[in-house]
Design a protein around this nucleic acid. Structure first.
Lengths: 334, 334
DNA sequence: ACTGTCTGAGTAAACGTTTACGCAAGGAGG
DNA sequence: CCTCCTTGCGTAAACGTTTACTCAGACAGT
């Protein structure tokens, strides 16, 4: 923060009052063409820039929105955030990105800080189930993304994970009836939806038995060990190829690596389906078949809704919850 | 932004003046223990939060720093940014992350916005060569990262790309004298350093001939086509294995994929060295040998220096430019 | 010539803080 | 009892804007 030339100085230099300068700047109220030119000239010459802190204070509007993201290192999140940021920027808002590191405490702390910086709105990616209005000023516009909040008054946008899992499962099922699902340790709401899609599809298609592995969080090496054991058990003596639905691309990629290690032929003996279409999906060999989330649409919906709320409009009943369709990307592992 | 309870209200409710409330809040100036308790109680009961916009205005200090990043989707950047954000947060600063999308215009526009929001400092990742003080208030603390600015008065922190390339080249050279380098289209300062490290090492070791490919930006498929042609030419009739130094991990990963496609054995016939140790490096098969940048140290240096500057301290002469050592990670492709 | 409207522009309050300054009360020291 | 210091706290200015009021002068209509 530094000493800069203020509107007062500009007023002085152009021989008018601050009010007039303000009116010229915002093109608001009455002033003559002559003064306009004069003031603008002085502004240009002195490289004047509005002090938005003062403006925010006076106007009760900061043109800043906060965005809470659990881990900006995750490609899906960073992608989504990047697009949201771009959309909001085009509407004149800047974005404070806060990395909550999946910590409830940090999330709360950030909410406080953002609140005190008087953001005009908030986007929350993958907040905790417990995320609700209680800790927020009631009139602060909020949009949740990816993980739906317990508080159903908060608008929500997320991919249709259930439908994605159904598509994935149907696709695998067309190739083999010997299926397995591999999940992460911690379950998010999106994760559960994917599991539900898988299980319900099997139920519907009357496939009764399927393998299941929960990979506990750890180093890549750890995870591979767990997968190795599972794969060895699972592939043992089965005549049909195994089709595995991995709940994320990293999981899928690790499965693929282990398969190579065990000299299991992919996709002949083992078919792998990922989820997300993260960058690694394209750099595996063979490349991963996966379900792609539409980050562009997701971001568009989220930022559009937030803008709407910040403009004081209300969301229609059917706008509160929005499911974004996903897409099956068939590549080498199936 | 919304109507919230202000210090005035708190003063009223506790029967003291705003000045006293402020003094209690900031634990600054004189007040009795009794008033302290009383005021704090009212504050708690009414869930009062300081309005930091007003505070910033009055104090000329916003406890906010801006960070310009060319592409938050890039794992190296997002990692670095994430750590910087964490470091600054611990010191009480929040961070506005701005995605400049590698556009000079957007960069300038963001600088203006940040300036008008009166940030206390600025971190610029990979700005343009032309980035300099001219467009900035002279007393705004700035740190550049990764790509060194033309303006040598701006402090800079970056990996030792030159040394990394030397290590990479020496390592490849120990296995084969038949080398090639594969680079990206657009050259950054870090890219040039890597090239220089490669070439000077070859010169020093008296290796005179080496292959070279510039992959022009395009889809993954496009890039692979260019690589395929190059690899076919290069591998044709050579008895020695080919060692290629790819200037990034994505390049390396694509080379690996093409090699599989052409049934070239890695690392027997072809040895591949990447750069960055990005996530995909660990998900290739075999996993990429690569040079890892130390994002933690990088971020620590950058945020530390910025804090120092924001505290009004000066940087010692030898602190202006800081090179962070890199590390050779030997894995499956060599 | 009187009234009314319009135009251009200034005055001052307000946004929510922090803090320099001042002052009353109380106690200590002579 | 007078002086002086200390303590606790209030008053008011200041940070840089925006904007509701106000008002003088110009001009038009009667």
């Amino acid at each position: 923060m530094n000493k800069k030339i203020s509107i007062k100085k500009i007023a002085e230099l152009s021989g008018v009052s601050v009010a007039t300068v303000s009116r010229v700047i915002n093109n608001n109220g009455r002033f003559s063409e002559e003064t306009r030119k004069k003031v603008l000239k002085v502004i240009r010459e002195n490289n004047y820039q509005t002090n938005n802190v003062a403006k925010s204070l006076r106007m009760h509007k900061s043109y800043t929105v906060g965005i809470l993201v659990p881990d900006i290192t995750n490609p899906f999140f960073s992608n989504t955030v990047q697009i949201i940021e771009k959309n909001l920027f085009e509407k004149g808002y800047s974005t404070i990105i806060c990395n909550t590191a999946r910590s409830r405490d940090k999330e709360l702390e950030y909410v406080k800080i953002l609140e005190s910086k008087i953001v005009d709105g908030l986007i929350v990616i993958s907040g905790f189930k417990t995320f609700d209005r209680k800790n927020l000023p009631d009139d602060l516009p909020v949009i949740c993304i990816d993980r739906s909040p317990a508080d159903s008054t908060i608008a929500f946008v997320g991919s249709d994970h259930y439908e994605g899992a159904v598509m994935a499962t149907e696709f695998l099922l067309a190739e083999t009836e010997n299926l397995a699902i591999v999940k992460h340790d911690e379950q998010s709401s999106s994760g559960s939806e994917r599991v539900r899609g898988f299980e319900e599809t099997l139920f519907k298609e009357k496939v009764e038995k399927f393998g299941s592995l929960i990979v506990s969080n750890g180093s890549q090496n750890d995870q591979q060990k767990q997968i190795k054991k599972f794969l060895q058990d699972e592939m043992n003596g089965s005549k049909q190829p195994l089709g595995v639905f991995a709940l994320s691309d990293t999981l899928a990629a690790n499965i693929l690596l282990v398969a190579h290690d065990l000299s299991i032929k992919v996709p002949k003996q083992l078919k792998i389906m990922g989820f997300d279409d993260s960058p690694i999906a394209s750099y595996c060999s063979p490349q991963l078949t996966t379900i792609r989330q539409n980050e562009i649409l997701l971001a568009k919906e989220a930022s559009g809704k937030l803008i709407k709320l910040m403009n004081g409009e209300n969301l229609a009943r059917d706008e509160i919850v929005k499911k974004i369709p996903v897409q099956l990307i068939v590549r080498g592992t199936t």
